[in-house]
Every structure is written in C-alpha cells, then in structure tokens.
C-alpha cells in the first residue's frame, strides 16, 4: 500500500478540473470535500484505456464519502445522508 498517497480517514478535495475528454469523475462532485473510506486497488487508467492505450501506470482508486449537504446546498434530506464515489488518486487533493 506504500504507493498510495491517501488512506482511510484522510480529508480530500476533488480537483475542480473540467477536461473535455473521457473521464470517470462525475461533474457534480468536482471541487467537493470528502473523506477517503477505503483504498480499493490500483487499476489501469480509464482516461488512457478509453483512447486505446494500455492505461499504464495503474492509478490508485479510492472510495470517497461525501455529505449530501456538502455536495448539494439545497439537499432536503437529513444531514446524515451521504454518498460514496469511486475516485482515482489523480483526481484528489489533500484537504487540510
């Protein structure tokens, strides 16, 4: 696990980047603050695979949990509601 930058419990921010091509980080979550819950292995980079390349080097993938209310300011449900999204390491920044 030494190759991974984050571990469970780390506060992270999803990069607020908007490249025009194929990515697997949903638009709505970019720029949001969350907490890593789990490292779920390193996988070939889908942003490379999508264009016919081999996806190497592999990218660490994390499950990241967000509070609904932090993602949607007008969220109508209870404050405890959350979402968990799978996000590759290169889409995450450390949050202080």
């Amino acid at each position: 696990m030494s190759e991974t930058k984050y571990q469970a419990g780390d506060a992270v921010k999803v990069r607020a980047a908007f490249p025009p091509g194929h990515v697997r980080t949903p638009h709505f979550i970019r720029g949001c603050d969350g907490v890593v819950t789990q490292y779920v292995g390193s996988h070939p980079n889908p942003e490379e695979l999508a264009y016919g390349r081999d996806g190497m080097p592999k990218k660490p993938l994390y499950r990241v949990k967000f509070n609904q209310a932090d993602v949607w300011p007008n969220y109508e449900g209870p404050a405890k509601d959350t979402m968990v999204i799978d996000i590759y390491e290169h889409w995450l920044e450390k949050n202080q």
């Binding site: 697997r24 980080t25 949903p26 979550i29 779920v40 292995g41 996988h43 889908p46 993938l61 949990k65 609904q68 449900g77 209870p78 405890k80 509601d81 959350t82 979402m83 968990v84 999204i85 799978d86 996000i87 590759y88």
Partner: peptide, 15 residues
C-alpha cells in the same frame, strides 16, 4: 426513516 442514513453509491469506476 429520517434516523437512518441514506448512502448512495455511484458506481463510476472499476467496482
């Protein structure tokens, strides 16, 4: 019920 957390999982990647 409101005392239960609803947790949505967005299956965006390899799992």
């Amino acid at each position: 019920p409101d005392n239960v957390e609803v947790r949505v999982h967005d299956s965006t990647a390899d799992l």
